[in-house]
Design a protein around this nucleic acid. Structure first.
Lengths: 331, 331
DNA sequence: CTACAGCCTTAGAGCGCTCCAACAAATAGA
DNA sequence: TCTATTTGTTGGAGCGCTCTAAGGCTGTAG
């Protein structure tokens, strides 16, 4: 259970500890003969370098810390895939932990990550106050994904929610819809730009807006629809996919068919939306790209290539499935 | 950007580095006055201890490494919640990384985790060969979740899939079903015990089994159902929730209603199953409990309280929703 | 007034590694 | 031949911390 150290390898190979260090770091200035001897000894002992000792001694880190606010949400998994790809490519490793959407746990997670002295930090949709983020950013480069910030020390990567909802509105209008309601995400993370996008797009088409208060859950979507039943629009744009699925259930329970009687559009293109049983028309965020850009921005900071903040605002795209169709009822 | 060290805090508080160390570790043998001074200095400097230096010096680690085979699967998120709860309670921290269901990436993830010299390792449904696991277990305590092993050096936590499917069969039989088919998970992780549970339970009720090859996806479930259409059973037990949802879509597309014409049971009780639009009767695994038990077992090993392997086999439970009902067609 | 407990506090060694300066040996240039 | 230069190797200091053993200080007892 006690792991061998460089000293052990050096003794076994009959060389100095420094030489073993050179071999482990792949230095070219080691003779082939010694290199082979060292590698052989390392192999025999089952030696592997001690990352912490290494980074302590070298005063550098090849670790990026990733704080995922909610591990239950597959959204983040794809962002992590993007991060991982870029990090691996550039010789960095990821350590992840999670805040469970609670500021307390999240702050703990942040402290834990920072205690490993990572080269940089990626925060995925954090819920901690900006002050905590600013404090972290004092010590190490930070990039925020799915959360905006005015801090000049942090970079951000977000989707253009205003534009995303605009795509949904345009799609429905082009199908012939005029009475289009928006189920609003309330105080949720990206609710405001989405609502704004809805209002702007409706106005640009000269249509009267109709915003209904709701939330990011399927129960919320169902409830909102129940309030719409007396005066049903021909199309509904939900604040996210869960909400849309709740809306669809409530519509079907009330005897309406989707998309025949009402078209429904979601947001996020979660894996749910792709299920054939759901097959939801929705707005897709380039999640993998989020991760890639976040890693890229972070590594620029890590290498000291940039000082001014970067604000990535990515273009969402509409994925048309089978919950939208031209209206059949009088518009 | 350069972080303060203990030395800095000591200088500012006018005490020695060792005293700061005692304060940071919460030692009782420090006078209140000095303690306050040290904490104040630390606060002012924004000091936080360097986890790596600490564990290097103390030759101990309060870190548990967690390898999640697939971050996209919310199953693991709940296991992590359980792990996190127990770890936090006992003063341990989690570092997570992911293998993306690829043996190569997983091996890399394993190496990365090990390089932090964690006190122990939790592997959630790993896909690497047993030899890699054995090797890791040579260096540090390892517990496997959702994967069995015969290695005497590793503990395991699994659900009793045989029993889980048995619950589903019993439920359907008690509703009056006699023609019950099983959509099999093929070579998937827990497919074998589930199939075995189905066969055993059917036999114990004196019913003829009908196993249909399928896989753990909604497309797989749909395809399997298409092959059943000429001779439809009155109930279907899927290998997991995705498969069940695919099966339901295919049934509905073929003009059958669930549960009126066919009852369907899933497995896993994913968050999908709870959506009102889906409302799937399914078998629940105590995921949070998986995590708690895994952490518990690991910490026993870490503290050297136990040497022999432990095999936890947890009881799944049936969650009855609205996709099962008594059969109306002749059985 | 000395002795001996406590109780706090501190110096110093050392964890596994990197990196620098120094050096021996081999090669090149004069 | 002798001095440069290059190439390969090494000892030692030090990264930020913990931990042991050995202090300094009080206060009380002898």
């Amino acid at each position: 259970m006690v792991r061998p150290t460089m000293e052990d390898v050096a003794a076994r190979a009959g060389v100095s500890r420094a030489l073993v260090s050179l071999v482990m770091r792949g230095s070219p200035k080691v003779s082939d003969q010694r290199r082979a001897a060292v590698l052989k000894a390392a192999e025999e002992l089952g030696y592997s370098p001690h990352a912490m000792a290494r980074s302590l001694a070298s005063r550098t880190s090849h670790v990026l810390g990733v704080m995922v606010s909610d591990l239950h949400n597959a959204f983040f998994a794809e962002v992590v895939d993007g991060l991982d790809a870029v990090a691996a490519e550039q010789g960095f490793e990821l350590i992840i932990n999670t805040g469970g959407r609670s500021p307390t746990r999240e702050r703990r997670a942040l402290r834990s990550l920072l205690s490993f002295r990572p080269a940089g930090l990626v925060l995925l949709s954090p819920v901690v106050p900006a002050a905590d983020i600013a404090q972290a950013a004092d010590h190490t480069p930070v990039v925020l994904v799915a959360r905006s910030s005015r801090l000049s020390t942090v970079d951000t990567v977000n989707d253009d929610g205003e534009r995303g909802i605009g795509l949904a509105v345009d799609h429905l209008v082009s199908l012939g819809h005029k009475r289009i309601a928006h189920l609003d995400g309330g105080g949720g993370t990206q609710a405001a730009p989405r609502r704004r996008g809805y209002l702007t797009a409706m106005a640009s088409h000269g249509l009267p807006p109709r915003v209904v208060g709701s939330e990011y859950t399927d129960a919320g979507g169902a409830r909102a629809v129940q309030g719409l039943l007396d005066d049903l629009p021909t199309a509904i744009i939900s604040c996210n996919d869960f909400n849309a699925i709740g809306a669809i259930s409530a519509l079907e329970e009330a005897g309406f068919r989707v998309p025949h009687d009402v078209s429904v559009v979601g947001y996020d293109n979660t894996s749910l939306a792709a299920l054939r049983h759901v097959s939801l028309t929705t707005v897709d965020q380039p999640r993998n790209e989020f991760g890639r850009l976040a890693a890229g921005a972070l590594l620029q900071r890590v290498r000291g290539e940039r000082d001014e903040p970067v604000r990535h605002l990515l273009h969402p795209s509409l994925v048309v499935r089978t919950t939208t169709a031209p209206p059949v009822r009088p518009a």
